[in-house]
Design a binder for these strands. Structure first.
Length: 567
DNA sequence: ACGGGCCGCGCG
DNA sequence: AAAGCGCGCGGCCCGT
């Protein structure tokens, strides 16, 4: 059963209607006062557990979460449209032409959970007169109908159905994780900053330890007015000191032996901590010992999530020591082992590669180690570099040189990524296992391909190869994202069912998701059960995507009090 | 003053 | 040892 939720006839109302799976009405259209939304949704959820249909989860769910209401499942029209518009599986369904424009994201809906109070008072003028257009009930019903039709008449209805329901579940998880936040000990973070940088500056100057390093650097390079934050400035000073680096990247600078290098690299590291994850970051993103990271489902073309504000998916190892579980809780940190290579083996149906990731009994083992044993003299890091190089399209360097060996060992898998690259170089589309397709090349890409002069020709080839590397990686990265999304969605479902039925106090809560890793904040007494669920969900995800295949997608789960102790 | 592009580096 | 995918972020730099 569906529950459609849309803007109401008057500004302070919403409309709600229950519909059957075939689209027929199962209830009257109800107009609900805005302030009664949460109570109404809560009641309908309890009695019907419908699939909530809304223009986008971000317009509705944060408000419900703040009111203490959670829902089991939804259909996010915006996310689903984003997939269906481009999917080759649905290319001949007429959906692309039929799709209506989903109302844009409203800023107020997104800010939701909390804002910087200083910023709020300075810049926010609460203005209810300016409102983005919202969909009424008929628009929601119409778009749902179009999307259902597109799925049903597509070339792979079951796959698209799975993709869209996993993506929609992702929208719920993302909103819940943002609302919940990662446990984050502000005083530990401050202590770390104090130890590494010195006291927080009260003016615009650098922290003491940073300024100290800058002075050392200026002395070592004999450049009194050097601004170490300026690459150009720095490059000139390095050259004057006889350091002939072509860039100021840290790995390149490490090659030179000069008294300036060490303070420079230390400056860089600390400067990054100060500017990106320092006191300002704490003030902006941490409230009441929770880091309220914001996730953007489907924010990457491949279907991976992105993050917005606070760098939820780029938390440096350096500061993970501040993420400590509440008392009576631990983190279960689980990551999928060698996810992308395993996805490649499954997509290409390369049984030799699958065998490298399994033992004689068919159970999983370290895939890189298996490949290393089969052809890289047991050197795991070499095997890893080679395989990642093959998936990314490396042509030179250490990684590129190792690829030919892989071609001999796993011709099917390597042929698979080669085909993906060649299709992309011609301007063609690629599609993930469940049906997310690459966007077509931009017009100026096609323009560049119709070149005449020799110089234009070279540029065209560079552009073609670049798109080839993108499409080569797209299918693997995108299908890995689908596996991870199914894993996450199934884990959420299990956690909810478990929390409902468990007599134990407390609730296990998903608090982070990083491409192939999930973090659950879990009451101590539930750790064993939840750890088992993390593994069960991984098997469900594998089965949902690939059915019965001779390859496992194992998960490594560690139980830690502090996030820094994982791995 | 603002913003788009680039750099360098954090994460996967 | 150091090029090959996808992102976000903050600072610099330069055009407007």
């Amino acid at each position: 059963m569906y529950a459609l939720l849309a803007a109401g006839p008057a500004p302070s109302t919403v409309t709600l209607q229950l519909r059957n799976a075939d689209g027929s009405a199962a209830s009257e259209v109800r107009a609900v006062a805005r302030q009664d939304l949460a109570a109404t949704v809560s009641g309908v959820e309890a009695s019907h557990q419908p699939r909530w249909v809304w223009d986008r989860a971000g317009h509705w769910y944060p408000e419900l979460l703040r009111a203490g209401v959670r829902v089991e499942k939804c259909h996010d029209l915006s996310l689903c449209q984003n997939i269906l518009r481009h999917s080759e599986y649905a290319a001949r369904t007429g959906y692309r032409a039929a799709a209506a424009e989903v109302p844009p994201e409203r800023e107020s809906a997104r800010a939701g959970t909390f804002k910087d109070p200083a910023q709020e008072s300075l810049f926010e003028t609460p203005d209810t007169s300016v409102k983005a257009p919202q969909w009424g009930l008929e628009a929601v019903a119409q778009e749902l109908r179009e999307q259902r039709n597109a799925i049903a008449s597509s070339t792979h209805p079951a796959r698209l159905e799975l993709l869209l329901s996993a993506e929609s579940a992702g929208a719920l998880v993302a909103a819940e994780m943002h609302y919940e936040g990662i446990p984050w000990r502000e005083e530990l973070h401050r202590k770390l900053l104090d130890d590494l940088l010195g006291p927080e500056p009260t003016d615009l100057s650098r922290p003491a330890k940073l300024e100290e390093l800058a002075e050392q650097l200026r002395a070592a390079l004999n450049a009194q007015s050097l601004n170490p934050d300026s690459s150009q400035d720095l490059m000139r000073a390095l050259h004057r000191a006889g350091i002939e680096a072509k860039s100021t990247r840290s790995w390149e600078l490490q090659q030179f032996h000069h008294p300036a290098i060490e303070p420079l690299l230390r400056y860089r590291k600390l400067s990054r901590l100060y500017t990106t994850n320092g006191w300002n970051w704490l003030r902006q993103w941490v409230r009441e010992d929770r880091f309220h990271s914001e996730y953007v489902v489907g924010g990457v073309v491949s279907g991976r999530w992105a993050s917005r504000g606070g760098g939820a998916m780029q938390i440096p190892a350096q500061i993970r020591g501040a993420a400590v579980a509440d008392s009576g809780h631990t983190f279960i940190v689980a990551d999928a082992a060698q996810l992308e290579p395993r996805v490649l083996a499954a997509l290409a149906q390369d049984s030799a590669m699958a065998a490298a990731g399994s033992d004689a009994a068919g159970h999983s083992k370290d895939l890189y180690a298996g490949i290393a044993a089969q052809g890289f003299g047991g050197d795991r890091s070499l095997a890893k570099m080679a395989l990642l190089g093959a998936i990314y399209g490396a042509t030179s360097g250490d990684s590129g040189r190792l690829v030919p060996q892989l071609v001999r060992m796993y011709p099917r898998a390597l042929e698979f990524v080669e085909q993906a690259a060649r299709t992309g170089e011609r301007g063609g589309s690629l599609t993930t296992h469940l049906g997310r397709s690459t966007p077509p090349p931009a017009q100026d890409w096609w323009d560049s391909q119709r070149s005449s002069t020799a110089q234009e020709q070279r540029r065209a080839e560079t552009a073609a190869r670049s798109r080839g590397r993108f499409t080569r990686n797209f299918v693997v990265q995108g299908t890995a994202a689908e596996w991870a999304c199914c894993w996450l969605a199934d884990l959420r479902r299990r956690l909810r069912a478990y929390a409902r039925s468990s007599p134990l106090p407390g609730t296990p809560q998903l608090v982070a998701f990083l491409h192939d890793e999930v973090v659950v904040h879990c009451p101590d007494a539930m750790v064993a059960d939840v750890t088992a669920m993390v593994h069960e969900s991984s098997r469900t995800a594998t089965w949902l995507l690939f059915g019965a295949i001779p390859l496992e997608f194992p998960v490594n789960a560690t139980v830690v009090r502090c996030y820094a102790d994982a791995k």
